[in-house]
Design a protein around this nucleic acid. Structure first.
Lengths: 211, 211
DNA sequence: ATATTTTGACCGACTGTTCGGTCGGAAAAA
DNA sequence: TTTTTCCGACCGAACAGTCGGTCAAAATAT
């Protein structure tokens, strides 16, 4: 009980900070708010983090880690053909986000922070990596589909994966501003449409070079 | 020269503020910075706006107005079939954004501001409208394609339009974090893929169910 | 077992600074 | 001269970060 306890407490502060930042935004949050949420004294926070900015960054890293990890677990759980799994993964991501809309505010806070000079370099590299990971995850699935003949050989997995990742972000943005917007439905229709577009034409002969 | 001059000056302040907010973010911007950028005294700003928040909101409205207007102009300029026009519009939007990446920081600032309680209601309604306008613009194009027989009758225009709008936002987010990312290329591939998925099957007989 | 010392987690009053907004008067226009 | 526009010195509230000190429990001595 020493570095163990410290680790736990640090984590607890990070989670408390995440809640407060999500609720009030970075600038709208006063260190005292976080201390109160974590039920500790203001000074204690500075035992664990050098500055408000450091704490914010720690929240960001914690958030990225847990989210990417979750998606990677999800995809490893899936079974079936590439197209089935792709569809399932995308729907699952959308549903997960939809279930944690409150945390979405945090994401926007991170985006905004990345626009300010000081934070930019710290956040940018991590964000780049997160997006790359997501693209790779989806791109791999698409490639699998191409390899198995489910998808056309002419499909270029990377940009399609990027577009899908982008669409997910974008759909959530729309939910954020209009909670009646049906992101899950839109994602389903998008997947149907893209599947149809990616599907290997099965009609004529059987060659890869349809026309 | 009175209300005319006032209007111009107000606009000038808004544009100066937009530049500074884009560069430094809302919290990172001090009223004095905006005054300097606009080459006026700090006090003068308060002759035109009641508060920093008001000014920020004015920037937001100015930004929305000019961007939506621009997209609407673009679409009215286009000629050709629905699929051609749709593709052209999307590419044109991507290219416009790519050419003004600096202003993208502003968009993120608006998103983040919408996460704070006070700003939220003011921004939310406008944002909702902007997204609705964009969706409607694209949805109308898709509907046109369905009506003309270019697209399948089973296509549901609204969610597809929403996904497209989302994908554009999302692609830009990726550019923001990795300037080597090729959003224009990705958008092209996405359009190809979706077009293929939306296209009326022309191969066998004329039914929907090929195979 | 008990007393004593050491350690370090914890705290919140305090401080120096920053910044949004004001105001009284200068400058320009009418 | 009167009115309008402009200005920046000034003010006070807010806040990040500090610091001196408390206290409980771990370590050590008895």
């Amino acid at each position: 009980m020493r570095s163990q306890h410290k680790k736990e407490k640090k984590r607890a502060i990070i989670e408390a900070a995440a809640r407060v930042f999500a609720r009030q935004g970075y600038s709208g949050t006063v260190i005292a708010d976080i201390a109160r949420e974590a039920r500790i004294g203001k000074g204690t926070i500075y035992e664990y983090f050098d500055s408000k900015e450091d704490l914010f960054f720690a929240v960001f890293e914690w958030f990225c880690q847990s989210h990417v990890a979750q998606a990677q677990v999800q995809v490893s759980d899936l079974a079936g053909g590439a197209s089935e799994r792709l569809k399932a993964l995308v729907i699952s991501i959308v549903e997960t986000f939809a279930a944690h809309l409150d945390l979405y505010a945090l994401t926007m806070e991170f985006w905004a922070a990345s626009a300010t000079i000081r934070m930019r370099n710290r956040l940018k590299a991590d964000f780049k990596e997160v997006y790359r990971d997501f693209r790779t995850l989806i791109s791999a699935l698409i490639q699998e589909g191409v390899a198995s003949g489910e998808f056309k050989g002419t499909i270029d997995p990377e940009p399609i994966a990027a577009s899908l990742v982008g669409a997910l972000d974008g759909l959530f943005l729309q939910v954020w501003f209009d909670e009646t917007f049906d992101a899950i439905g839109a994602a389903r229709k998008l997947m149907e449409c893209m599947m149809e577009g990616m599907a290997q034409a099965r009609g004529p002969s059987e060659g890869k070079r349809d026309q």
